[in-house]
């Protein structure tokens, strides 16, 4: 069991993830090409200008208006992406499988970052439950997604801390991680992919066409 999840399952997950992302990108690009105005509107300079104002916290009015949310959200997203990439336990795997090695996080830091992700998810769920304007547009799928996102972090943390049966926990962790990867191109998690494009498009429309700022 462990051998399977550790080997083929992870490979399958990566293949589906990469393949899925490519498929989504290409099929959407073809569709966008049919809409005569999408590509001609895209403008590198203004697209990047807008992106810059939205990947830097407090560089736009909305993030300034809600500082707590901004801090939590940025910390969450950074930890969410950086932890799995730079975790020492993962670094070994990168090296074993692909022969690549890069800088990795000190374990204590990685633990804190994992907890930031978990805390972030709790915060988002509470916000969904308590803010009327968010609750109004929330469906069960939004909660399920949070659960999916947080699951590899909780199980990974538990395995690392040797809680319960560490080996079973590790298997669970890998399965959750695989699901997480596979879900990116096919669920709302794809906002990870689309963010750059939709923001750059709006930035281009505001900047290049309408001579205005969108942040």
């Amino acid at each position: 069991m462990f051998e399977f999840v550790r080997g083929p399952l992870v490979w399958i997950a990566f293949i589906v993830f990469v393949g899925g992302v490519l498929y989504r990108l290409v099929s959407t690009a073809i569709l966008a090409g049919k809409e005569k105005t999408v590509f001609p509107t895209m403008d590198l300079k203004y697209g990047l200008r807008s992106l810059m104002h939205w990947i830097v916290p407090f560089a736009n009015r909305n993030t300034r208006m809600r500082p707590i949310f901004t801090v939590v959200s940025f910390a969450f997203h950074i930890c969410l992406l950086a932890t799995p990439m730079f975790l020492m336990g993962h670094a070994v795997l990168w090296k074993e499988s692909w022969g690549v090695s890069w800088w990795s996080l000190p374990p204590a830091t990685a633990d804190v970052m994992t907890l930031v992700v978990v805390f972030g998810c709790v915060f988002f769920v509470l916000r969904r439950l308590t803010s009327p304007e968010v609750r109004n547009v929330t469906t069960w799928k939004d909660y399920a997604l949070v659960l999916l996102v947080v699951s590899p972090f909780i199980t990974g943390y538990a395995a690392h801390q040797q809680w319960l049966d560490a080996r079973a926990m590790l298997i669970l962790h890998i399965i959750c991680g695989a699901l997480w990867l596979v879900a990116i191109p096919f669920t709302r998690l794809s906002h990870m992919i689309w963010f750059a494009f939709s923001r750059a498009y709006m930035g281009s429309e505001f900047g290049a066409v309408r001579n205005a700022r969108d942040w």
Partner: peptide, 21 residues
């Protein structure tokens, strides 16, 4: 009409409500 953008918009929206204010 607007099928690519519509698709991306509907899928990308994370139901966060940040547009409300």
């Amino acid at each position: 009409r607007a099928s690519a953008r519509l698709k991306v918009y509907l899928e990308t929206c994370v139901h966060c409500g940040l547009c409300s204010d």
